[in-house]
Design a binder for these strands. Structure first.
Lengths: 344, 344
DNA sequence: GTGAAAGCGCTAACAC
DNA sequence: GTGTTAGCGCTTTCAC
């Protein structure tokens, strides 16, 4: 197989024209009224010699690469990894390849990636956008590319998006903590104005206020090292001994927060220290106590995203109404949020 | 930017020929003795209008896609994720794109991926091969593609590879446990004949034998669910109360093994139960006790791999001698391997 | 039903 | 030093 076989070789071997072979290969045999006999003969031969059309030539000619660009915040985060896997699987079944990358929530990197994807001629874009890429997205859309936003939205960008009900997620997590008897619940989040983070904060705040409790909010920086974040959380928690529970706004903050809690020996010192994380994570069942979490429906998210994308890709009409799909979260209660014993 | 600008547009605008523009764009201005003045003028214009050559056309013409296919066992495993990231970063700086995929250590999937990469016309292949792909790799190599194997080798495949000294890794981990006073050390690994797994087993066995101890080996199945694996490990450990330490052959076995150990309450029941994992993992500093691990030099691995690949890609000579690079591991001692107290 | 031929956008051998 | 032109391998219009 050193020597690449071409469509012209097929045609020559079979004594038919290139056109005929191409039509058959592209499933247009019926449409072009090519005899079943010939169709079968060509297909059989193609199969035998293992001919595969050159994708580059095909793409250059048709303008389609059958490739979808997928940009998530961080592919090493189990939440995004899981979504990416599911999307890839579905896409693959439909004959699409997925190229994925992590934005690291960095505006410049994301812009570069978008530009790289354009250069690669991807047919569609699935993105968890960081802040500051509004104009880039609008450009993509106005240039006619299918764009589906995941996990978060950008105000003013008119395109499809699939998100979860962040507000209810943190609202119910906070309510759960309150019901379990915790009174001083901290919310540890990141310094981000992204829609999903804002909504998570709102859900927490609402639940706290409804119960006439006080909010305790810490915003750590996204772009800082793990150890810095741990330190930051540890000093916050260390200074406020009155805090008896904490809700982490993402799983990676929680993982680092747990490290801080370990360092402070918070749980062993106060056996009734409550912990909840937004986003589930494998390690939450590994550590003791196991950690209560707000699970996001990764499968549903992935399925909806790819459905919408495939639809956009196949439909001629440019003008599908942009719609936002909001999926529910689910609180998984584990041992980190026990009923708080009242100490006299 | 709705309308794509072409190289012919540039030529027309500037009143020069397409060739000239192409030469300048490809850095052959000097070589073709094009005036500095013209070169500068073209470059300036190209910059201004934001012209980017169509990669598809370029690739079709040159036969090069400036893309490297990277297939790791499991991109969600921190070890592979970290290597992939580092490779991607370096490759990107050299003007190469990386397409990555997980083989899941599945022969058929890997073959499909290799075929997909061929279809995509990647310029080179970086692979952590599962069993059973020997012929596919040989084919790739004999067809002239640069192939670099990582983490494991395949006997009889004559190509470059970067691996670590697995034997010494488990040997020193086992020796460490013995030195700490453990007498019944189990080795929990997977049912794989891959080079790296075989070597890890050998290192363990050697250390055990040198000390006239008994081996306790459990092979779990790679392709089974997490809970099945946990169950499997738990029943093994539960049945053999004499085991006082365990060395896990990979980080994901260790993570599941820890779950099993938790279920059995092994560490709290026997405070001197020793645990070591081959491969480090973030959670090993999160759980209590923190887990001693054999760390692999991911950075060095990634750097060597990409160095070799770039070299292969740039050098004309097909006949670079295939060589295997063996990197050392490092034992990170944490609290899961305390000096064993002798109980009278 | 089938074939000839015009590109898709670029590179580079060859001519001048 | 610069321009003409023949492809890279495929799809698809148009003619027969």
């Amino acid at each position: 197989m050193k020597k690449k076989i071409l469509i012209s070789d097929i045609a020559k071997q079979l004594n038919v024209s290139i056109t005929t072979v191409s039509f058959i290969l592209n499933g247009k045999a019926k449409e072009k009224r090519i005899s079943d006999e010939l169709t079968a003969r060509v297909l059989k031969f193609v199969e035998e010699v293992g001919f595969k059309p050159n994708q580059l030539a095909q793409s250059l000619r048709t303008g389609k690469t059958k490739t979808i660009g997928l940009m998530v915040e961080d592919i090493s985060n189990p939440f995004f990894a899981s979504i990416a896997r599911l999307i890839e699987e579905r896409a693959y079944k439909e004959g699409y390849k997925i190229i994925y990358c992590s934005t690291e929530d960095d505006t410049a990197k994301t812009q570069e990636l978008i530009s790289m994807f354009r250069d690669m001629h991807v047919d569609g874009y699935i993105i968890t956008p960081p802040e500051g890429v509004k104009e880039d997205l609008k450009k993509l859309i106005s240039d006619g590319f299918p764009v589906v936003l995941v996990d978060r939205q950008i105000r003013g960008v008119d395109t499809h998006s699939v998100v979860v009900d962040n507000y209810s997620g943190t609202y119910s997590a906070t309510s759960h903590l309150i019901r379990q008897g915790y009174k001083n619940i901290a919310f540890i989040t990141i310094d981000s104005k992204q829609s999903q983070m804002v909504q998570r904060l709102e859900g927490y705040t609402k639940a706290i206020e409804e119960n006439q409790l006080n909010t305790n909010i810490l915003e750590v920086l996204y772009h800082q090292s793990a150890s810095q974040m741990i330190q930051h959380i540890a000093s916050f928690l260390g200074e406020r001994k009155e805090i008896d529970a904490v809700l982490f706004a993402t799983n990676y903050i929680a993982v680092r927060g747990l490290e801080a809690i370990n360092q402070l020996d918070l749980i062993s010192l106060a056996p009734n220290f409550g912990v909840v994380s937004y986003d589930d994570h494998d390690v939450f069942t590994l550590v003791r106590p196991t950690i209560t979490a707000v699970a996001q429906p990764t499968e549903a998210i992935a399925n909806h995203v790819i459905d919408i994308m495939l639809n956009l890709l196949n439909i001629r009409t440019k003008s599908t109404q942009a719609e936002t799909l909001v999926l529910p979260t689910r609180l998984i209660t584990r041992s980190s949020t026990p009923l708080k014993k009242v100490v006299q």
